[in-house]
């Protein structure tokens, strides 16, 4: 029982990332009808927002400390980050420590802007072109974004540690009545899961309870009619693209402490996220979220020693296998609506 619970928990962090990326992909697909292969790159850019902020906060100047001498008798060089100089050592150290959560504030405007520019500058011109062209141009864009990041940050993964207060593990087993040490779980994964749930909730309530969201939903159902009613639906869809980019970016920001960001993390997630979207049902937002968590948990179950000894390598192929089965038996996906991209 506790083993099952542990595997479910283990699947939650990857599942959260899948769900968030798939949510953004589905938003873009549902609103603009564009298949965005550059969405993984947006996830990666989000993660590098955290890296950038961390680097900015750690910008330091050198001073010579006359009280301390190194073994040659020269005064020791001490590096003080500007933040500590400005806000005092205590506050400054805390700010640096909390750089990843702070990066959320930094990432939201950046990602909204990136999404806006991407839609206005490129994707806009591809609405009338076939899906294959959209895939190809966004695929090219993904390569370009990835290479730009590689040029500035190098090819190696960059560590982005979580704040000290959230970096340990917590014994969840005791809280729900299992033996001690049965379920030990890193705190940051819980934070990530909570964060993902928060974002998903925010996106859904934004669509459900605001006028803006209502218009967007109407536009997703019937774009033409909404346009005929005198509503500038294109502008709203552009904003939705920005929001989808921000969702992917935030997923990336918070993912850094789980897995050090490198330039190709986006591509790694992209393929899986597409599979998630297809399993969930193209154009269905709840489907994307559900499939994201389901596949994440399934992957974690397939990685147990029991599963890998029964069927070797099952953890590597399980998601694709599920996708193939779902696509063949239930072509619309788990929660796909009728008439969306059926061909």
């Amino acid at each position: 029982m506790d083993a099952i619970l542990l595997q479910i928990l283990n699947g939650l962090d990857k599942g959260s990332a899948y769900a968030l990326i798939a949510l953004g992909l589905t938003l873009i697909f549902g609103t603009l009808g564009v298949v965005n292969f550059a969405h993984g790159a947006l996830f990666m850019i989000g993660a590098f927002c955290a890296v950038t902020l961390q680097k900015l906060l750690n910008l330091s100047f050198e001073t010579l400390d006359e009280t301390q001498k190194d073994f040659l008798g020269n005064p020791l060089k001490v590096e003080t980050p500007y933040v500590e100089y400005w806000f005092g050592p205590e506050v400054g150290a805390t700010i640096i420590d909390w750089s990843v959560p702070l990066a959320i504030l930094f990432a939201i405007p950046v990602m909204l802007l990136v999404g806006y520019v991407m839609e206005r500058g490129l994707i806009k011109h591809f609405y009338k072109r076939p899906h294959a062209d959209q895939i190809l141009v966004t695929f090219g864009l993904a390569i370009v974004l990835q290479e730009i990041v590689k040029y500035f940050f190098g090819a190696n993964p960059i560590q982005t540690p979580p704040p000290d207060a959230l970096s340990g593990s917590v014994d969840l087993g005791i809280m729900v009545g299992f033996d001690p040490n049965a379920i030990i779980y890193p705190i940051w994964r819980l934070v990530y899961f909570g964060f993902a749930v928060g974002i998903i909730g925010a996106v859904f309530s934004f669509l459900q309870f605001t006028t803006f969201g209502m218009v967007v939903r109407a536009g997703m159902a019937d774009r033409e009619t909404v346009g005929l009613l005198g509503i500038n639906i294109d502008r709203r869809f552009t904003i939705m693209f920005g929001i989808a980019a921000a969702v992917a970016g935030l997923a990336g920001v918070m993912y850094g402490p789980l897995n050090p960001p490198n330039y190709h993390m986006g591509m790694d997630f992209l393929v899986l996220s597409f599979v998630v979207v297809v399993v969930g049902g193209m154009g269905s937002l709840p489907g994307a979220v559900l499939a994201g968590f389901l596949l994440g948990i399934l992957e974690s179950f397939a990685s147990t020693t029991w599963a890998t000894t029964t069927i070797p390598g099952i953890n590597q192929i399980i998601i694709y296998l599920v996708a193939i089965i779902v696509l063949l038996t239930r072509p619309r996906g788990l929660m796909g609506r009728k008439g969306v991209m059926e061909e």
Binding site: H131, V271, F274, G313, Q316, I317, L328
Partner: peptide, 25 residues
């Protein structure tokens, strides 16, 4: 059995599966 983007994703899934199989299993 599927066309359009589903076909792309199916072939992608099969290829990634073959890659994973060849690489480890």
């Amino acid at each position: 059995r599927r066309s359009g983007i589903y076909f792309s994703i199916l072939t992608l899934a099969f290829a990634q599966m073959s890659f994973a199989l060849a690489y480890s299993v």
